[in-house]
Design a protein around this nucleic acid. Structure first.
Lengths: 98, 98
DNA sequence: CAGACTATTAAACGATTCGTTAATCCTTAA
DNA sequence: TTAAGGATTAACGAATCGTTTAATAGTCTG
């Protein structure tokens, strides 16, 4: 869980938007490319950044490549940062994932 | 609450580390500069990025400037992204801030 | 195999970021 | 008002990012 790669990946509005799309359902590269005002290679690059951060996973299905959100990675990272900056008072009781 | 500025600010390990320091107590620029292997101007720049994102606030105290974490901004941003990518099943019941 | 379609990688480019040192601003104190 | 200390801004070079078009790779179909 490389926090740095994850937050670097999240520092891009298009990538966060892709994650939002993928939260509804798995999508192929072209599905996503159709939803963004950028070329398919650009979308592919963004997806590889997300995958490199462990935020999505891919599965080839014939000619297409299907991308799926990895919720655990994302929620874990957010929770981890949250706990790091959480006040001392709030830090005491262990709590379930957000 | 400009999510973009916030996540851009978080995409830097030194800045996240500064937030962690500030989560313990408010600190001046030079306090922080002493804790990072970079020049004071560099630290000041990072702090201004954090402040611009609303993640910290500053208060001048004589010659020093004291920086304080704004937890709400951070936790709100994390919660907002979390809810955006939260699965449909989890989205139903409104829940309190993380 | 040839050809079409999808996805990724390569190459090139401009824009941005991040660090440095030097200069400037603000506050305090002599 | 002068000097000193702390903080910020200016200016600059190195590195990274994000995009585009062109080229390459993988997969199905005729």
């Amino acid at each position: 869980m490389e926090l740095d790669r994850i937050f670097t990946a999240l520092a891009s509005a298009p990538r966060r938007r892709m994650l939002a799309f993928l939260s509804q359902t798995a999508l192929t590269t072209s599905d996503l490319a159709a939803r963004f005002p950028m070329s398919a290679p650009a979308v592919s690059r963004h997806l590889s950044v997300l995958q490199n951060a462990g935020l999505v996973e891919s599965e080839r299905q014939g000619q297409r490549v299907l991308y799926r959100l990895k919720r655990d990675t994302l929620l874990n990272a957010l929770a981890r940062l949250a706990s790091e900056v959480d006040g001392p008072l709030r830090r005491e009781p262990p709590r379930e994932a957000i």
